[in-house]
């Protein structure tokens, strides 16, 4: 990545934030217009969930410049963590989310520490391998995880705010807004992170790891921190995913999901803060559409991957930016 593409992080001195207005207006009104373009509430929620996962991954991929092809593990562990609480312990949505985050992030820290022993392609390979460990455990530990069929028989609980009860269990639109609220908090945290010295350090590592090292930055430690933070956000998304579907299955841990999350980030534009959300919106919608239209959905998804890599490597936003720059 060249030095001309520095900092796509939101900065205080940026121009009027028209794009922010558009993004939030679109997200806030989504349930109202989703139906007209052939969508539905659950699709909108799914876009937000995967958007959050991809933005979480992108802290590592786009902003630290480190490749992970195993984020499905933390996504899936988030989902299972939430599922365990609802299935075996208490009927509480907030607690479910917290435990999902805990499970995913702890795994992220432990695995991350082990993976830091390798770099480059071997690191990427390790991220896949550690992801598959979680997959096989979920797959074979039948009595606890439900094995191949997944963890079923739980439902998200209505949200008790003290003065009123939000029935997010039965009301899909209300659940969408619940997901959106958590999404908003998470993106705010990510934005703050990227403006902080830690975020700047991450970007410095992406731009030139060797120079960062010469400046006295402990590169390995910062990559580990970035890895842990990104697994945190991805596991939030995973916990929400379990609540959305009311089940958690091993597929959510499979490396194919990792690939999907990565392509979302790349597709939207991984140098842009909001790129992964756009990528998630496009990919999730396409996937939904293609899988209902043809049995050869695998070819189409494959072609999307190949086309993005060969023709739009900087994603939709990167492509638009270059076009407007060349005019």
């Amino acid at each position: 990545m060249s030095a001309t593409t520095i900092s796509a992080a939101p900065s205080r001195t940026a121009k009027p934030k028209l794009h922010l207005l558009i993004i939030w207006a679109a997200l806030l009104t989504a349930p109202a217009w989703m139906g007209y373009i052939g969508g539905y509430d659950a699709l909108a929620s799914r876009i937000l969930v995967f958007g959050l996962a991809a933005m979480g991954l992108n802290l590592l991929l786009g902003f630290t410049g480190v490749m992970s092809f195993g984020h499905a593990a933390y996504f899936g562990l988030g989902a299972y963590g939430a599922g365990f609480v609802l299935r075996y312990w208490v009927h509480s949505t907030p607690l479910a989310i917290l435990c999902g985050i805990l499970l995913g992030t702890v795994a992220g820290v432990v695995f991350g520490a082990l993976m830091m022993r390798r770099t480059g392609m071997y690191f990427a390979m390790l991220t896949i391998a550690f992801g598959q460990i979680c997959y096989y455990v979920a797959y074979s530990w039948n009595s606890v995880t439900g094995g191949y069929d997944g963890l079923r028989g739980f439902q998200r609980a209505p949200l008790d705010l003290g003065f009123t009860v939000l029935n997010i269990r039965d009301n899909g639109v209300l659940f969408y807004y619940f997901v959106l609220a958590i999404f908003a908090v998470c993106t705010a945290l990510m934005g703050l992170l990227l403006r902080s010295p830690l975020g700047r350090t991450m970007i410095a590592i992406r731009e030139n790891p060797r120079r960062a090292r010469f400046l006295g930055i402990n590169v390995e430690r910062h990559i580990l921190i970035s890895f842990a933070i990104s697994t945190f956000f991805t596991s939030v998304a995973g916990a929400l995913y379990a609540l959305l579907n009311n089940f958690a299955d091993p597929t959510s841990l499979y490396y194919v999901i990792s690939g999907n999350i990565v392509i979302m980030a790349v597709m939207g534009g991984m140098l842009n803060f909001w790129g992964p959300l756009l990528g998630a919106a496009i990919f999730v919608t396409l996937q939904d559409y293609i899988s209902s239209m043809t049995v050869n959905w695998m070819s189409w998804i494959g072609i999307i991957f190949v086309a993005i890599v060969l023709f739009f490597p900087s994603g939709v936003l990167g492509f638009l930016r270059r076009r407007s720059a060349s005019k």
């Binding site: 990545m1 392509i263 999307i304 991957f305 190949v306 890599v309």
Partner: peptide
């Protein structure tokens, strides 16, 4: 960067 070759062979 590495991510592209992974995505390409994945596709």
């Amino acid at each position: 960067p590495h991510v592209y070759s992974l995505l390409l062979t994945f596709g």
